[in-house]
Every structure is written in structure tokens, then in C-alpha cells.
Amino acid sequence: MSDLPRILIIDDEIQIRRLLQITLESNGYKIYAAASGEEGLQQVAMTRPDMLILDLGLPDMDGIEALKKLREWSSIPVIILSVRSNETDIVAALDAGADDYLNKPFRTGELLARIRTALRHVTSPDGENSIFESGPLWVDLNARIVKIKNEIIKLTPTEFRLLSLFIRHAGKVLTHQFILNEIWGPSFAEETQYSRVYVGQLRKKIEENPTTPKLLVTESGIGYRLEVIE
């Protein structure tokens, strides 16, 4: 039983904790729970979980604050739980080192998918595999070859850099600030139009129907995510 992935839930709402515990345990995870930020951080240190689900509204400290403290000494995947219309907090949490986020109320399927993505990152570190596949998209990062349904397509240098950035963080949500910083540098962190324009161009080349993207999806008010389609 000790092989099961272990997840720590930090949420002050007993109902949410219980609900998550029941749902996730029935899906094959070992669950620990904490009701406050302080207790949660102690639990991380003691139980060494594989993953953390963190609510942003905690009684003793801000979720972002707890996250920042955690990131000083731990790099375990973290999924943020939040309510709608809190995009600023979500972006702040992602920039502070969270791996993903989920709005309450969430669908069980969605939660499980996010957990799988987050855990996969830990098991297969970057750079090992230069081939990436998701639905119709096939990319060889080393050879710089991009194929859609087995047909080679041409990307500009910037488009390719953008795509490989998404592939390196496949399944994870990337904030505009993160994308801009990685591709264009820190002085462009506010120039959202760059990422919008380039993601638009990239979609035209890799999506079957660019108006209803399946691969590069928009996370409203936050950024983009490259979906991993099995």
C-alpha cells in the first residue's frame, strides 16, 4: 500500500477535505489533510507527500504566503484551489511556484486529470525524452521537427521556441508573464499582446480548427495550457 502516491490537502473546510479524501482515496491515492497553513507546512516536512493540494483562503495565513514558504525548501507539485473571479490571486500563486490550479466547484474528472499531469512531471524529468506527442501533434525537440497528422509543418524560430516551452510544461497552465519572460525576456512581462499574437499564429498551424483549439487552450484571464491528449 505504501506504493500509492501520497497527496496532502491543506484546506480549512472540513467538508472539502472529507470530500477530496473520499474521492481521491477511491481513485487510488493516499491522503493526508491539514486545516491550516502552519499545520500543513509541518505535515509536508514530516510526511514528505508526492503532491500538495492547497486552498488559497486559509485561516492563519494567505495561501500564497504558505506557498512561498514551502518553495523555500521543497519543490513538490502544488495544485491551487480557488474560487472564480480571483484570477489575480491565481496568477500570483502560479508565479510563486504553483504547478496548476482548479476553480471551485470542480469536476472530479478534471481534478484527477490535473493530479495525473502534476505527478507525471515528477516521474519523468525534462530533457530525457526529445519526442513529444499529443493527439495529432508530434514534435522532435532535438531535430526541430514538427508534424501534424504525420505531415511536417514549418514554424518560425519564435513559434518553435514557444511550442517547445509549452511542451516542456505540457499539461500545465502557463501564465502570460511566464511565457513573455521566457521567450522575450523580463522587459516584456507586461506586453501580453506578444503572447496573444504568437499563440494565435501557432494555433493556425497546429490546430485542426484554430477557432476551437483542442491543443493550446486558453485559461481565461490566466494564460494557456498545452493539453496532453493520450
Binding site: 473546510e13 467538508q15 472539502i16 470530500l19 466547484p105 469536476r107
Partner: peptide, 11 residues
């Protein structure tokens, strides 16, 4: 307000 609703929907 949202926590109980979230619990209901998820459950």
C-alpha cells in the same frame, strides 16, 4: 457560499 455548493456538486 461556494464551499458548500462545491461540496454538493463534486459529491
Amino acid at each position: 457560499l461556494r464551499t458548500p455548493i462545491a461540496a454538493m456538486i463534486t459529491a
